[in-house]
Simulated assay, not measured.
Amino acid sequence: MFVTFLRFAENRNAAPEFMAAHNEWIGQGFADGVFLCVGSLQAAAGGAILAHAESRDAYDARIAADPFVVQGVVTAETYEIDPKRTVPALDFVKTAA
Rank of each mutant, 00 (worst) to 15 (best):
A61G: 09
A76N: 07
L36Q: 14
A65K: 10
D32W: 01
I63A: 05
K84D: 00
S55R: 01
G46V: 06
H52V: 11
F18Q: 10
A76H: 06
A20D: 15
R62V: 02
T78L: 04
A15W: 00
D60E: 13
P88D: 13
V69D: 02
Q28I: 08
T86Q: 07
G29D: 04
G46H: 06
E80H: 05
I49T: 12
S55C: 01
R85D: 02
P67H: 02
R12K: 13
L36H: 12
E54A: 13
E54Q: 14
E24I: 12
V38T: 15
P83Y: 00
N23D: 12
P16G: 05
V70D: 07
T75Y: 07
F30T: 06
E24K: 15
I63T: 08
F68C: 10
A65M: 03
S55A: 01
E17G: 08
V34N: 05
V74S: 06
G46P: 04
L41G: 07
D32H: 09
M19L: 15
L50H: 09
G47V: 07
G72D: 02
A76K: 03
A31R: 14
L36T: 09
P83A: 03
P83R: 01
A53R: 15
L41Q: 11
A14P: 03
D57M: 01
H52K: 12
N23V: 13
F68G: 08
G27C: 09
R62M: 11
I63K: 05
Q42R: 15
V34W: 02
D32G: 09
R12H: 08
D82Y: 13
Y59W: 00
A58R: 11
N11C: 05
G39N: 10
I49Q: 13
G72W: 03
R56H: 01
A51L: 08
V73S: 04
Q28H: 06
P16H: 07
T75P: 10
V87R: 14
V73F: 05
H22I: 01
A43Q: 15
A14K: 14
A20C: 11
N23T: 14
R56Y: 00
T86F: 00
A43G: 11
E17N: 10
A14E: 13
G27A: 11
A44N: 15
A43V: 11
L36C: 12
A48V: 14
K84I: 01
V70R: 13
A43M: 08
Y59V: 07
V70S: 05
V87Y: 07
F35V: 08
G33I: 08
I63D: 04
V38K: 15
A58D: 08
V87N: 10
G29N: 04
I26D: 08
V38L: 14
T86W: 00
A64R: 09
V87D: 11
D60I: 01
R12L: 05
H22F: 01
H22M: 04
T75W: 03
A15S: 13
D82H: 12
L41Y: 05
D82G: 03
P88M: 11
H22T: 03
S40E: 14
G33T: 09
P88C: 10
A15L: 09
Y79W: 06
T86E: 08
S55D: 02
V38D: 12
M19Y: 15
